[in-house]
Computed example of a mutant assay.
Amino acid sequence: MTEPEPLSDDLVLLFAALADHTRAEITAAVAEVGYGDLRPSDGYLVQHLLGGAVSVGELAGRMGITAQGVSKVVIEMERKGYVRRSVDPEDQRTRMVSLTERGWGSVHATREVRAEANRRMRAMLGAGATAFLDQVRQLAESTGALGALTERRLRP
């Protein structure tokens, strides 16, 4: 039996730890600017509303969960003021979900906080930042992770 590699050499665990640390840091910074009731998992719904109103059924399909599951998240986010539900003018049975002004504010705040985190990490990497990013991007592309990200297929 071979010895396991040290934790500090395990790419999978290092990426997981970095993602967890960064997620917590960004969540805290977003809370500081007025969105403390947002959870990281709320972003999985929000990403599908950036292009405009979407039906609950379509959200369920995109998110890979049941319409009942989406409805539960939507009700909670509506209660917090991030989304609104409305009747589809073309089909009175269909409920559409869209971002509110507060929802858009949280999107912009999260983007700003994430951009600052990116700047800070690139500064830590120094001159090697571009090469490192290229390598990580290559890993993400070859594993399919980049496609999942760009096509908004990430799931909680």
Score class of each variant (00 low, 15 high):
Ile75Tyr: 09
Thr130Lys: 05
Ala24Gln: 13
Leu149Gly: 00
Thr130Trp: 04
His48Ala: 01
Thr130Gln: 08
Gly43Ser: 02
Thr150Arg: 15
Glu116Cys: 00
Val54Asp: 04
Arg137Ser: 04
Met1Asn: 03
Arg152Tyr: 03
His48Cys: 01
Arg137Leu: 10
Gly69Met: 10
Lys80Trp: 03
Val74Thr: 14
Ala115Asn: 04
Leu45Pro: 00
Val74Gly: 11
Arg85Gly: 14
Arg122Val: 00
Leu146Cys: 04
Thr143Ala: 03
Thr94Ser: 10
Gln138Asn: 05
Glu90Phe: 09
Val87Gln: 14
Ile26Cys: 06
Glu76Ile: 13
Pro4Tyr: 04
Met63Tyr: 03
Val87Lys: 15
Ala16Lys: 13
Trp104Asn: 04
Thr66Ala: 14
Ile75Ala: 15
Gly36Gln: 02
Gln135Ala: 07
Ala31Trp: 01
Leu14Cys: 11
Asp88His: 06
Phe15Cys: 12
Gly81Leu: 05
Val83Lys: 12
Thr130Gly: 00
Ser106Pro: 04
Glu3Gly: 08
Val136Ala: 10
Thr2Arg: 15
Leu154Thr: 12
Arg93His: 06
Asn118Gln: 07
Ala115Gly: 03
Arg93Ser: 10
Arg85Tyr: 07
Gly126Pro: 01
Leu154Ile: 11
Asp42Gln: 04
Val54Gln: 14
Tyr44Ala: 01
Gly144Met: 08
Val83Asn: 10
Pro40Trp: 02
Arg153Cys: 09
Arg95Gln: 14
Ala123Pro: 01
Lys80Met: 14
Leu154Met: 14
Arg39Leu: 07
Met63Arg: 15
Lys72Ile: 14
Val97Gln: 09
Asp9Ala: 15
Ala17Met: 15
Gly147Asp: 13
Ser86Gln: 12
Gln138Arg: 11
Thr150Gly: 09
Leu50Ile: 04
Asp10Gln: 13
His21Val: 11
Met77Trp: 02
Glu151Gln: 15
Ser8Phe: 11
Arg23Phe: 01
Ala67Gly: 13
Val136His: 03
Met1Pro: 09
Ser86Glu: 13
Pro156Gln: 08
Gly43Pro: 02
Arg62Met: 13
Thr2Trp: 10
Gln135Lys: 06
Thr130Tyr: 01
Lys72Val: 14
Ala131Cys: 01
Met121Ile: 04
Ser142Gln: 13
Ala129Pro: 00
Ala117Ile: 00
Asp88Arg: 11
Arg39Met: 08
Glu112Arg: 11
Arg79Tyr: 08
Val97Leu: 10
Ala28Tyr: 03
Gln135Thr: 00
His108Asp: 06
Leu14Gly: 08
Glu101Gly: 06
Arg111Phe: 02
Ala67Met: 10
Thr143Phe: 02
Val12Phe: 11
Gly126Ser: 01
Gly57Thr: 12
Glu151His: 12
Glu151Cys: 09
Val56Phe: 05
Gly52Ser: 04
Ser71Arg: 15
Glu90Tyr: 07
Ala131Lys: 09
Arg23Val: 09
Leu125Glu: 01
Pro40Arg: 07
Gln68Pro: 05
Arg102Ala: 10
Glu78Thr: 12
Val113Glu: 09
Tyr35Asn: 02
Arg122Leu: 08
Ser71Met: 15
Val113Thr: 10
Arg120Met: 03
Met77His: 05
Ser8Asn: 09
Glu78Cys: 11
Arg120His: 04
Lys80Val: 06
Val46Glu: 01
Arg39Val: 00
Pro89Asn: 06
Leu149Cys: 05
Glu78Lys: 15
Glu116Ala: 05
Asp88Asn: 14
Ile26Lys: 07
Gly69Leu: 10
Arg114Phe: 08
Tyr82Gln: 08
Met121Lys: 00
Arg84Pro: 03
Thr100Gln: 09
Leu133Met: 05
